[in-house]
Design a protein around this nucleic acid. Structure first.
Lengths: 243, 243
DNA sequence: TGACACCAATCTGTGCAGGCATAAAAATAA
DNA sequence: TTATTTTTATGCCTGCACAGATTGGTGTCA
């Protein structure tokens, strides 16, 4: 994935900071990094700029590159989300994302029923039909990909780019859920019906029904996986004190 | 604000790209930028790296720095949000953010009632009392600041860092709303009661009541300002086609 | 003696200038 | 059409000067 030297350094430092291998509060010197990673200053500096935008570090003169604590991290940054999912904060990250999608997807479905363009409504109907087919057949691999596409489409069809942008991490959740074996042998009949009803409602411009059925999906989703993070500590970020 | 040279260049290019002064699809050459902005290559390169992370540009060898279209922009990036609010996409940005907060804040209130730490519950009670005081007194300036603090606190008290991170842009919405004169002479009595009820419910660990009252606030908010973006075009970002 | 303000040394990121290597588009040849 | 060469802009490296923040010392005054 990381083809450029620069991206390698970002990946190296970012993953280590998020995982805690480089403790918060540490001070790194750019010169040391040059030596340790065997790259030039320009590469280091560009990488540090990117990491600073992620909220992972904060470079100041005469002191060096300071590693910041988790409350400064940008929780919507794709890098940060990926690194957290690959660390022991995986549970906490899954919880945050799931709470977010539970909040957002019903509204997205409602909006989609109001404003979605015709081709997206059509594809939604197609996808839900295929979900029924492969779901009842027990083809979980194909069902997973369709499920991901379904939710991404609803988010996109809402016409809200902030919603649409959540499709990648939500796809990651869905993949993670099946990888962890949290999915039943074959999808519940109810779940299939709800997905079909969401697609129907959006197709028929029925916002209330779209929301209601999506809420059902979200409720079940929450029940199925909330046990994963029962004991994960929560992070309370007071914006006034973070400054 | 932009103290470093590097930040200046980011600001210069970013605002121009978002506003459309530099049209999407344009190809910029780093060498030209050096001349036009009278800065060195390292500054340009670091700025371009930052803009690339915002999804505004995409620098590739032998071709130059390509300006990307809006569907590639990172809608959660603070820079991007600020630039959009300062452009003619202000309406669309306000709509996206408002739809997001309407989705998220009821869940945040519900979670806060379950997991908020004691000091946050206390401060929430204090803030809502002050909101009552200054609201009934008609001191809109002070009420606005308290309102911003109130919603930021609920988001933080949810223990979901993705929710908490929305407090800055949501604060910007609230400020914008009063600047545009969309607030009544003095806050509605209902609104004051709902805020008080949210604080009470969180303080008494009553998730259902917290959600219900926050939903009331959100419903009224939506009714008050949705007219602003009645005619704003929506952006449908199909993740499969964006690549 | 001790507290405090001021100044100089020092350290590290920031910015500048120029060089070579390399990848990808474009032009040319097969 | 396909293969090859040429072109050209970014990627990466290095040496140098500057700015700003920390530190420690110096001197003054109580």
């Amino acid at each position: 994935m990381a083809t450029s030297l620069h991206a390698h350094v970002v990946e190296h430092l970012g993953s280590r900071i998020v995982s805690g291998q480089i403790p918060r509060g540490s001070i790194i010197l750019a010169a040391d990094l040059e030596q340790k990673l065997q790259v030039s200053r320009s590469v280091i500096r560009e990488a540090v700029r990117v990491l600073a935008q992620c909220g992972l570090v904060n470079s100041t003169k005469r002191v060096g590159i300071r590693v910041l604590s988790a409350e400064h991290w940008n929780p919507y940054d794709d890098h940060v989300i990926r690194w957290r999912l690959a660390s022991d904060q995986k549970g906490a990250q899954l919880r945050s994302l799931t709470e977010l999608r539970i909040s957002v997807e019903p509204m997205a479905a409602e909006l989609a029923a109001e404003v979605a363009p015709e081709d997206m409504r059509k594809e939604l109907m197609l996808i839900s039909a295929q979900m029924n087919h492969y779901g009842r057949q027990g083809d979980l691999r194909r069902f997973l990909e369709l499920d991901i596409r379904f939710h991404a489409l609803v988010l996109a069809a809402s016409g809200n780019e902030m919603f649409a942008n959540l499709s990648t991490p939500i796809g990651a959740i869905l993949r993670g859920r099946t990888e962890l074996g949290l999915m039943p042998e074959r999808p519940h009949e109810e779940a299939l019906l709800w997905h079909q009803s969401v697609a129907d409602a959006i197709s028929n411009s029925d916002p209330a029904a779209a929301r209601r059925n999506m809420e059902s999906i979200m409720r079940r989703t929450h029940n199925e996986i909330s046990s994963l993070w029962e004991n994960e500590p929560r992070l309370f970020v007071d914006p006034a004190k973070t400054s």
